[in-house]
Design a binder for these strands. Structure first.
Length: 420
RNA sequence: GCGGAGAUCGCCUAGCAUGGUAGGGCGUGGGAUUGCUAAUCCCAUGUUCGCAAGGACUCGGGGGUUCAAAUCCCCCUCUCCGCGCCA
């Protein structure tokens, strides 16, 4: 959600953002609704004021044992009008909120404007692409030959894009998680394993409405949704709270399974475990003072890069263009890791500053002193590691001539072995 | 799942029987006063509408009764205690 002040004082700023994102949105309707809504608030408030005044007078007269019938009659007729007006107001308010919740976030000035194909900007590159003097396999062959994943039976049991992780790959998966948690704990991130099911209200705070359809699984007959990432549950964690300024920034390392419908991705990455309905993820989430958030954003991407350097996975950092970015983000870096089997860099990390957009939806504010005005804080999130994709990269990049997998050095103490 | 108790302003707490429009304490900020790193007193301290003056809303959430609901009625959520069930 955007600051409604911008809507009133500088709608052109929003119009520009919509254009830069190439998003269709009826801004004029929202402006009309906001205006109407405030008019109705004033009108109902006035009627309520009158009602309150009369009520007080009735109370006084009763004490004095005076007649109150005329006042009661008056207040009753006003009551009907009030009920009607309130119904109008609630209706408008509902429309307003529904629409306001779908406006995307503002865009940071450093974000390149335009289409992803031409405007996504490579910022950095790290690591040497591994060279092989034998015929390389992709991860689908590797997991088959080493009996590390059972896709067929998963399809039978759960459908496409599910998998049974097996044998040493289970350990490698856990090793990635444990390494990631140790890595972040050392950087003073608090570890959090959130609820994997959250209420609609919480989910709406973290994501934009249309993502529900494409991304989120719902539990039938319950107001519960499977999280698409721990970001959703962690963002909502401090809903309706006023945080003491001295506690900021609050940094969380979330660990959870992630569930995604992947609607509309038919045909893309159809095989293997690269694009799946369920995976584990260790996530960075920061609640920050507004003036610090851009600084925190850079710190986050640095942490992420350090992690992949330790894993010895070649990557590049991409600054997403205005049209490619998620709607809640004001600026996003993606990290793409080298995947030998695909001879390409593929997305493994998304690192975003959401400014006060989520905080407004979730009413997460802070202040330094109790009598100070509260301010919305800023939220930032980044993947550290989504295990399934990084497993793909490790298996493909660290494959050996005889068809095995070398385990990256930093993970060996976690797996207890150096080769699969 | 059953029975009982409970949820009040950032935190603690009063009010609920007998409906009259949230009081106190702590913390924090500001001010006053005072010869000492202290004490005392006053004011402020939720959301929202408004340029302002000034309103409206707010007692876990939602309905209802009433001129008027923290208070009465109904539904729901969560917490605590006991019982049952259970990895």
């Amino acid at each position: 959600m955007l600051d409604p002040k911008i809507l009133r004082e500088n709608p052109e700023k929003i119009r520009m953002m919509l254009k830069d994102r190439a998003v269709e949105f009826d801004l004029d309707k929202l402006i009309r609704l906001d205006k109407k809504r405030r008019e109705l608030i004033i009108e109902t408030d006035q009627l309520r004021k009158k009602r309150n005044d009369i009520s007080i007078e009735i109370s006084r007269r009763i004490k004095e044992k005076e007649n109150v019938e005329d006042l009661v009659a008056e207040i009753k007729s006003d009551g009907h009008k009030l009920i009607e007006l309130e119904a109008d107001r609630d209706e408008i308010e509902k429309d307003y909120v529904r629409l306001a919740y779908t406006i995307p976030n503002l865009i940071h000035k450093s974000v390149p404007i335009g289409d992803s194909k031409t405007e996504n900007k490579e910022i950095r590159r790290w690591g040497k692409i591994p060279q092989f003097d034998f015929k390389i396999q992709d991860h689908i062959d590797i997991v088959e030959n080493l009996d590390l994943v059972d896709l067929e039976r998963a399809a039978k049991v759960s459908g496409a894009r599910f998998y049974y992780l097996k044998n040493e790959l289970v350990r490698l998966n856990q090793a990635l998680i444990n390494f990631a948690l140790d890595f972040l704990a050392e950087k003073n991130y608090s570890l959090v394993q959130p609820p994997f099911l959250i209420k609609r209200k919480s989910m709406e705070g973290a994501i934009i409405a249309e993502d529900f359809e494409d991304m989120i699984y719902k539990i039938q007959d319950k107001d519960l949704y499977l999280i698409g990432t721990s970001e959703h549950a962690i963002a909502a964690m401090h809903t309706d709270e006023i945080i003491e300024g001295k506690h900021l920034p609050m940094k969380y390392a979330g660990v959870s399974p992630c569930f995604r419908k992947e609607a509309g991705a038919h045909g893309k990455d159809q095989k293997g475990i690269f694009r799946v309905h369920q995976f584990e993820k260790v996530e960075l989430f920061v609640f920050s003072r507004p003036e610090e958030s851009w600084n925190e954003h850079e710190k986050m991407i640095q942490i992420v890069e350090e992690f992949y350097q330790k894993l010895e996975i070649p990557y590049k950092v991409i600054l997403l263009s205005s049209e490619d970015m998620g709607k809640i983000s004001a600026k996003t870096y993606d990290v793409e890791a080298w995947m030998t089997g695909q001879n390409a860099y593929r997305e493994i990390v998304s690192c975003s500053n959401c400014l006060d957009y989520q905080a407004r939806r979730l009413k997460i504010r802070f202040r330094d002193k109790t009598n100070e005005e509260t301010q919305y804080l800023h939220t930032l999130n980044s993947t550290l590691v989504a295990t399934s994709r990084v497993l793909v990269s490790i298996m493909e990049n660290f494959q050996t001539k005889d068809g095995h997998i070398d385990i990256p050095k930093v993970l060996q103490s976690y797996t207890g072995k150096s080769i699969i």
